[in-house]
Design a protein around this nucleic acid. Structure first.
Length: 509
RNA sequence: GCGGGCGUAGCUCAGUGGUAGAGCGCCACGUUGCCAACGUGGCUGUCGUGAGUUCGAAUCUCAUCGCCCGCUCCA
């Protein structure tokens, strides 16, 4: 990280560096397996981070499942029958071997790139890389495209030339595959399958192969019939799930933003085709508002409708909810109209009937699916970036000093209340302990601290994002009141000691 | 995956071949009467990891892991 000569870009980088440092310093997020040198793309949530993340998931679950009568929950297994991933297209689609050019850095599908070499003895008369359907058509293409000098040579040696043709995924020993664009050397063919593979049972043979799910959605689609048959729901209705998913990303980046193990919070909302557009718009707008209500400012948050060309093959429409991170604008959640694509695919592959029969209209149909699918870790990171604030506060001599605070929405804050004795004597610790016990008993997260100067204790809570700090002082013993300090404004109210829980609850909302 | 930069205490970093450092932090005791106070004492290191060169490596070489930036990729 640069120390000086900051451009706009590097000061944004610096901001991300400060956020990463604070996350570690205060125990929000650690790198996985750090003592062994870490492991790329995996992260651990520390004591404050796990509270923050859990708060976020609980609020989501409350808002989309418990407070609604049209959505039910689900917790599906991470490992599913491998046929699920054939039906979803995850096994077939992303496993083509690819090659890169070492020189011009272009990337190609290995089985589509051929190298053609013509030799007389050990002399190479012609060698070229070419994109083609077969080795013979590749040679023809090379002959047609050859320049006049090369053509001359080829004609001259005609019957003596020994041809070698091969695709970039089947390079013979001692040969090298060539780039069709720049004639540079190509890398070995590599398979780019995003799914983590494992095996079931003690013996690792091919019959036992299984995958860690690359998305949670398929667990919902596979249980759609079970839920319909057991939960007395009928379209329009949704199934919600929070769970881990795994993708063997080529290039994990940007702290926890793109990691190989991550958590999704996802709804699959089933409705009639004729209502699909209406529900799509409903969920797109509702999900956008959800983030704003939890404290992401609308200037950094944006809702972006996908262009027609940008849509995945299964989606009729799609919108991204994006956040302007210090490293750039990136997606938090996607809301898509997936049509009846998924249920149809599972009906085809499993042979099981996925239709719904509507008793009132006497219509039988496969429902359309609206999918609001959010990344939990991405949302946590967005709230962390949003909360990170530097301002100035006076020290004990009234001089302004830099202060770092995390302005979490009180609902998200890992610790809701901290309780301090002003000094460690005259019974103040005991009185503060009692208040601490009361707050804990109420179910609010609370932190007790009597170490060091009062100002230091306030600042420590500022970095943890604790919205309220309660202090027991001399006056507490005269009129049973305490001061309660607001994290953002630094203002203090004096309230009755037994009203702390009530005061905080009112402001958490 | 490619190219570049970086990796030293919990954090920020200094240290260009000769006994591992500073500031902050953390812990204890005292002091302290509302915003990173003060005093005294204390703790903290596989110098990312492994190998090599050398009498001697944090320092030079190679490999490897991790982080950052750009490209690439992105169901």
């Amino acid at each position: 990280m640069g120390k000086e000569g900051k451009t706009d870009l590097s000061s944004r980088d610096d901001l991300m560096g400060k956020i990463v440092a604070l996350c570690k310093r205060r125990g929000f997020i650690f790198q996985s397996s750090e003592i062994y040198g870490g492991i790329n793309g995996f992260w651990d949530y520390g004591p404050l981070g796990v509270e923050l993340k859990r708060n976020l998931k609980n609020i989501w679950w409350e808002d989309v499942v418990r407070k609604r009568d049209d959505i039910v929950g689900l917790d599906a297994a991470i490992i599913m029958n491998p046929k699920v991933w054939e039906a979803s297209g995850h096994v077939g689609g992303f496993s083509d071997p690819m090659v890169d050019c070492n020189k011009c850095k272009a990337r190609f599908r290995a089985d589509r790139i051929f190298t053609v070499i013509g030799r007389v003895g050990d002399d190479v008369i012609v060698s070229a890389g070419v994109e083609a359907d077969s080795d013979l058509s590749a040679r023809d293409k090379v002959l047609i495209e050859a320049n006049s000098k090369t053509r001359h040579k080829i004609d001259h040696y005609r019957d003596q030339i020994k041809w070698v043709m091969f695709s970039a995924d089947k390079v013979p020993p001692n040969e090298k595959a060539l780039c069709p664009l720049c004639e540079g050397e190509l890398t070995e063919a590599r398979k780019f399958n995003l799914m983590f593979k494992t095996s079931i049972g003690a013996m690792e043979d091919s019959s036992s192969v299984a995958y860690l799910r690359p998305e949670t959605a398929q667990g919902i689609f596979c249980n759609y019939k079970n839920v319909l048959d057991t939960s007395r729901v009928r379209p329009p209705f949704g199934i919600a799930q929070i769970g881990k998913a795994f993708r063997n990303e080529i290039n994990p980046r940007n702290f926890t933003f793109r990691s190989r193990e991550f958590e999704q919070m996802e709804i699959e909302f089933f409705c009639h085709e004729s209502d699909a557009d209406k529900w799509y718009e409903y969920w797109r707008d509702a999900r956008y508002k959800w983030y704003i209500d939890l404290g992401l400012t609308s200037s950094r948050l944006r809702l972006r409708d996908h262009e027609k060309e940008e849509l995945a093959h299964y989606a009729a429409s799609c919108a991204d909810i994006e956040y302007d991170f210090p490293f750039g604008i990136s997606e938090l959640e996607g809301v898509a109209n997936r049509t009846d694509y998924d249920l149809k695919k599972h009906q085809e592959h499993s042979g099981k009937d996925m239709t719904y029969f509507d008793d009132q209209t006497k219509e039988r149909y496969i429902p359309y699916v609206i999918e609001p699918s959010g990344g939990v870790d991405r949302a946590v990171l967005a709230f962390i970036c949003e909360a990170y604030t530097e301002d100035e506060a006076p020290n004990d001599k009234g001089k302004m000093q830099k202060r770092v605070l995390m302005k979490f929405h009180p609902r998200l804050a890992p610790i809701k209340v901290a309780v301090f004795p002003l000094v460690k004597k005259e019974g103040m610790p005991e009185a503060a302990r009692k208040i601490y016990d009361d707050v804990l008993a109420s179910g609010l997260t609370c932190f007790y601290d009597e170490k060091g100067a009062i100002g230091r204790r306030y600042r420590r809570q500022d970095e943890a994002g604790t919205p309220f700090c309660v202090t027991v002082d001399g006056q507490t013993f005269e009129d049973q009141t305490v001061t309660i300090r607001d994290r953002d404004s630094l203002k203090q109210d004096r309230i009755a000691a037994d009203k702390v829980v009530e005061y905080v609850r009112e402001r958490i909302g």
